[in-house]
């Protein structure tokens, strides 16, 4: 099939690339993130508005939960608003946190998409303020713990969350708790 001749550089639409990190209590797929951004943009700005934005998800790395979108260079604020207005995917709370904006993909990768602390999975039983939790993961000292207490689980269900966020130093392992019991 005959391909369209590329426009000269001076006539090509100017673009901005926005890197983001998807934050959620579960791993999101590219398809889910792409449709959530499109639905949010359509809901906020309508079909005419989105056609002016030229907003598309270009890349989403499911292992790192990071990616980037492209938009028209004058529509960065609207694109950020559309991503920021995504509140849930599949009935669970999420946040697509913008990391930065760049004019080229190469600069975007160098500045915002290189090097990320890895999530360390865990199944340890811990205590937080006297209540029992199961530690599910830690990333850069930020821990995600699942409560055993039914009242707290109900509160999380209402908030559409699975885990409580706590600092590693606030959680006490079972051994530490036993030490504390014996006054050590």
């Amino acid at each position: 099939m005959l391909r369209a001749k590329p426009l000269p550089a001076s006539l090509r639409p100017r673009k901005r690339y926005i890197a983001f990190r998807a934050e959620s209590d579960r791993r999101l797929t590219r398809r889910e993130v792409g449709s959530a951004i499109a639905a949010s943009a359509l809901s906020l700005f309508g079909e005419t508005g989105v056609s002016e934005m030229n907003l598309r998800l270009l890349e989403f790395r499911e292992d790192e939960q990071r990616g980037f979108v492209v938009c028209a260079h004058t529509q960065v604020l609207r694109a950020v608003a559309a991503m920021s207005a995504v509140s849930e995917i599949g009935g669970e709370r999420v946040h697509l946190r913008p990391l930065g904006v760049s004019g080229t993909v190469r600069a975007l990768r160098r500045k915002f998409l290189s090097g990320e602390a890895a999530l360390i999975s865990s199944e340890k039983r811990v205590k937080l303020e006297g209540k029992d939790f199961i530690l599910r993961g830690t990333i850069s000292g930020l821990c995600y713990a699942e409560p055993v207490d039914e009242v707290l689980r109900e509160r999380l269900r209402i908030l559409k969350l699975r885990f409580v966020g706590a600092l590693d130093k606030e959680l006490r392992g079972e051994e530490d708790a036993a030490d504390a019991k014996h006054g050590l």
Binding site: G141, C143, R155, V164, G165, A166, L167, K169, E170
Partner: peptide, 9 residues
Amino acid sequence: ADTPGFLRR
């Protein structure tokens, strides 16, 4: 749903 220390960081 999160501790004050977590939110602060």
